[in-house]
Simulated assay, not measured.
Amino acid sequence: MGLVSTFKKGGVHPDDKKSLAKASVIERIPLPKELIVSMAQHLGVPATCLKKKGDVVVAGEKIGTASGFISAEVHSPVDGVVKEIRKVRLANGALADAVVILPDREQKTTFTTKYDYSSLTSEELLASIKDLGIVGMGGATFPTHVKLQIPVGKSVDAFVVNGVECEPYLTADYRVMMEKGKEVLEGIMIISKIINPKRMIIGIELNKKDAIEHLEALIKEKNYPIEVMGLKMKYPQGDEKQLLKATINKEIPSGKLPIDIGAVVCNLGTVNAIYEAISFHKPLIERVITISGEGIKN
């Protein structure tokens, strides 16, 4: 583990409450009777719907296509039939088209065949990330293919993977690290082929020491050029500005982006999604979430 650090200005220290769900392994929830898939699940321009009522869809099939530079492809998360296309109200108050899908009782589509991507160029990897609809999993949902397109004249000094998960109660990224550590590390190496960083760093707060030790052991086993940096517990260290100050001691100027200081930041869940996309041709059709709190029995 590298230097124990944090950002200097501000921050609070809430009770992390992570013990409530930390030991709970990832499990799949039962399928609902219907799924509502919005065409605006990402930052930027909503996707254009490609389906109509009565269409049969399979898991991973494209049901919405990106309609702008900052936009994303949308895919069906299940095998099923389109019940209807309707407007839905999003959490931000906006209206968006949505595909309502009735899932088949038996889900036949799987993503278990692993493909050899070793001969793919950085351009081909980036095109796959775009086509498979990968967006930021840390909350902003920014289209990842846009983030990983490094502008001409810019270079990446540091690729920082955000494994901080500083919010109280949340343990989703922690469980991904513990259960899918090898996949996360392979995802980091895939991204490194695209952006060619000088350093690769995973930032993790010290309330997840077992995750730090687990990833360090895997890194040593594979001899990956990846650093794990333990960080003091402080909210909101998961914000990319605070994270970059904590890990590489650089500040993003007002109105600028991380690449303007030679950095790229990806959430740990995004890295795992890229691994699955490139290795198994699996679109972004699911994610790990935390269900926790004092009011939950199990």
Rank of each mutant, 00 (worst) to 15 (best):
Asn223Ile: 13
Met39Lys: 00
Lys8Leu: 14
Lys232Met: 11
Met200Leu: 09
Asp210Ala: 02
Pro143Met: 06
Ser155Asn: 11
Gly10Leu: 07
Lys241Arg: 15
Val152Thr: 13
Asn207Gln: 01
Pro103Ala: 04
Ser279Asn: 11
Asn207Ala: 04
Gly255His: 10
Glu240Ile: 13
Pro253Asn: 05
Ala158Glu: 05
Val271Thr: 07
Ser128Asn: 14
Leu148Arg: 03
Lys33Pro: 12
Pro151Ile: 10
Ala91Phe: 13
Glu276Val: 08
His42Leu: 05
Lys222Arg: 14
Gly138Ala: 01
Glu216Ile: 10
Glu73Ile: 08
Leu120Gly: 05
Ser128Trp: 11
Thr144Glu: 09
Asp173Val: 02
Val82His: 07
Ser254Asn: 11
Leu206Phe: 10
Ile204Trp: 00
Ala217Phe: 12
Ser38Ile: 03
Ile296Asp: 02
Ala59Ser: 15
Ile63Thr: 04
Ile150Gly: 06
Lys22Ala: 12
Pro103Phe: 03
Ala127Trp: 12
Thr247Ala: 13
Ile134Tyr: 10
Ile101Arg: 03
Arg89Tyr: 13
Ile289Lys: 15
Gly153His: 01
Glu227Lys: 10
Asp260Asn: 07
Ser5Phe: 06
Val135Thr: 11
Ile261Gln: 10
Thr270Phe: 01
Lys256Pro: 07
Lys234Tyr: 14
Tyr117Gly: 12
Leu132Tyr: 07
Val45Ile: 14
Ile261Cys: 07
Val164Ala: 08
Lys245Tyr: 13
Ser5Asp: 04
Val74Ser: 03
Tyr224His: 09
Thr121Ile: 00
Ser292Leu: 06
Thr113Tyr: 13
Pro46Thr: 01
Gly80Gln: 08
Thr270His: 01
Cys166Glu: 08
Lys234Phe: 14
Ile101Val: 05
Val184Tyr: 00
Ala211Lys: 02
Lys208Gly: 07
Asp157His: 12
Gly93Leu: 03
Lys52Gln: 14
Ile201Pro: 04
Ser67Thr: 11
Ile212Pro: 09
Tyr115Cys: 01
Ser19Ala: 15
